[in-house]
């Protein structure tokens, strides 16, 4: 009885004990959840960047949208008949749980029925991609021309021969070096799907021609292109109108 008397005297105050405890706990929980949320935001911001050697499966939405849409289920990985795709393990530098492939180890074989895209339950691998030749998994770049055997004058055209859309994505362009030597330079064109066969077959120990995520190569241009072209994965313009940046006024 004494206890009850005390209780009622407390409740005459601003808040009774039980209610106060409830509100305090609620506020504590909300603050802690907010802190977790902030930590998570910081983590996601740093963890969602795609490293240059990791390529997305064909039909993948632009990276930011892909991160929203992909649920990390791995059904594309299971559907891939060549074991090209992997799900990124935690702590490996690739956004955890997302599908990727590394061209130098196992490139994409460009199946015409695109089984990985067909297996995707969420549309992160966009269903609008029907022709694998329209896929843009990345862009091949002649990353270190000085080491290219062909540019050194040797008879190598491994990348040209490896390309599944031969003669369209990579051509060997005749070039005359100072001193009169004629060499052939592998040149990548907009038909490149980023399958990675060229990087895989490149002869030197470290590949000279490398496939990188398109956004890393084309940056803003790629994004702008995607926005103006609703048909996903269309090739970018043959000769994009690149103008020099405005110069700062001379003093």
């Amino acid at each position: 009885m004494d206890d009850r008397g005390n209780d009622s005297s407390v409740s005459k105050g601003f808040l009774d004990a039980a209610r106060r405890k409830f509100l305090l706990q609620g506020a504590g929980s909300a603050c802690a959840a907010g802190a977790v949320s902030l930590g998570l935001m910081t983590h996601v911001k740093s963890a969602r960047a795609l490293p240059s050697q990791a390529l997305r499966p064909p039909g993948a939405l632009p990276e930011a949208d892909f991160d929203t849409a992909c649920v990390r289920c791995g059904l594309c990985v299971r559907a891939c008949p060549f074991a090209t795709l992997n799900l990124a393990p935690a702590g490996g530098g690739i956004p955890v749980g997302t599908p990727y492939f590394e061209a130098r180890s196992v490139p994409c074989e460009m199946c015409s029925d695109i089984p990985c895209k067909a297996a995707c339950p969420t549309g992160a691998l966009a269903p609008v991609l029907e022709d694998i030749a329209q896929a843009r998994m990345g862009v091949a770049v002649l990353a270190d021309p000085e080491r290219c055997l062909s540019l050194q004058g040797m008879r190598c055209d491994a990348c040209f021969q490896a390309c599944p859309i031969k003669g369209k994505a990579i051509t060997m362009e005749r070039l005359t070096r100072p001193g009169g030597m004629t060499v052939f330079m592998p040149s990548v064109h907009t038909a490149c799907t980023g399958c990675g066969k060229c990087e895989h077959d490149c002869v030197p120990q470290v590949a000279v021609i490398r496939v990188m995520p398109a956004a890393q190569v084309r940056g803003e241009l790629e994004r702008g292109q995607r926005r103006s072209e609703p048909a996903l994965g269309m090739p970018v313009a043959d000769s994009p109108a690149v103008s020099a940046p405005p110069r700062p006024k001379t003093r």
Partner: peptide, 13 residues
């Protein structure tokens, strides 16, 4: 957090 980052944030952890 998912809404603010446009990402499946909790699935990172």
């Amino acid at each position: 957090t998912a809404w603010l980052t446009g990402s499946l944030a909790w699935e990172y952890v």
